[in-house]
Amino acid sequence: MSLQVGDKAPDFTLPDQSGAPVKLSERWGEKVVVLYFYPKDNTRGCTAEACSFRDGYESFTDAGAEVIGISSDTVDSHEKFAGRHELPFTLLSDRDRAVRKQYGATTLGVVPGRITFVIDRTGTVRHAFSSMTNIGGHVDDALAVVKRLRDESE
């Protein structure tokens, strides 16, 4: 991973599953952002991860966070994936993998990795977790960090 805890998160604008542009800095100004990169819609591991974020979504929103998933799949693919699995959060299409490269979200420098970042309201990376196989770790660790950030701000 090239992006580390304490780094400023690179800003970007990408289309969501409905084709609307999403500018990251507009999101982190409002809430803590849980930004997770995943390899591909409708694969076993990626579906499990998305459904884990879906199942914990209310806990994230209650703690003041927004969940955003990113892969290089098309807007249309994301729309179908989100609909099929009733995903209540935003999926972004990074077709040319430029944002993935900015965040260093690759394995061995070329394979799309499974990496989750927690970005605070100032745009600072507060947590990074990378594992292709520990799906639950992405959700559990991110939620723990989000709750800690909420408690620190109260």
Rank of each mutant, 00 (worst) to 15 (best):
T133F: 15
A65V: 10
F60Q: 06
Q102G: 09
P39E: 08
L143V: 01
E79Q: 14
F89M: 05
G29K: 15
S71Y: 10
V33N: 09
L149N: 10
V118M: 00
H127C: 01
A82P: 03
R148Y: 07
D96E: 15
D41Q: 13
V22E: 15
V99I: 12
G29Y: 00
A20M: 11
F53A: 08
A144P: 03
Y36G: 01
A144G: 09
R44P: 13
T47S: 11
F53H: 06
V75D: 07
A65G: 09
A50P: 06
K31I: 00
P112V: 02
T90S: 11
A20N: 15
G69D: 09
T74M: 03
R95V: 10
T122R: 12
L149H: 14
K31C: 00
T106W: 01
L24M: 14
T106H: 01
V22K: 13
A98H: 12
D94H: 12
F60C: 08
V33S: 05
G123R: 06
E58F: 07
L92D: 14
V139L: 03
L143I: 05
Y103C: 07
L143E: 04
V118L: 00
R27G: 04
D41M: 12
D41W: 13
F81I: 06
A98E: 15
V33P: 05
L35G: 13
A105W: 03
R126Y: 10
V111K: 08
K31S: 08
E58N: 13
R148K: 09
H138T: 11
V34Q: 10
H127G: 00
D73M: 10
L143N: 00
Y36A: 14
T107K: 04
C51K: 11
S77Q: 07
I70G: 08
V139Y: 05
V67M: 05
M132H: 01
K23L: 15
G19V: 12
V32C: 03
K101C: 04
L108Q: 01
L91E: 09
K40Q: 07
S18C: 08
K40Y: 03
F37E: 04
G64D: 06
G69P: 08
T106D: 11
F129H: 04
I115K: 10
P21Y: 13
E49D: 09
A63K: 06
G136L: 02
T122N: 13
Q17T: 00
S52T: 07
V145S: 01
E79P: 01
G19L: 08
T116H: 01
V75A: 08
F53G: 03
S25K: 14
G113S: 08
V22L: 15
A48N: 15
A105C: 04
L143T: 02
R97A: 14
P112Y: 02
D62G: 05
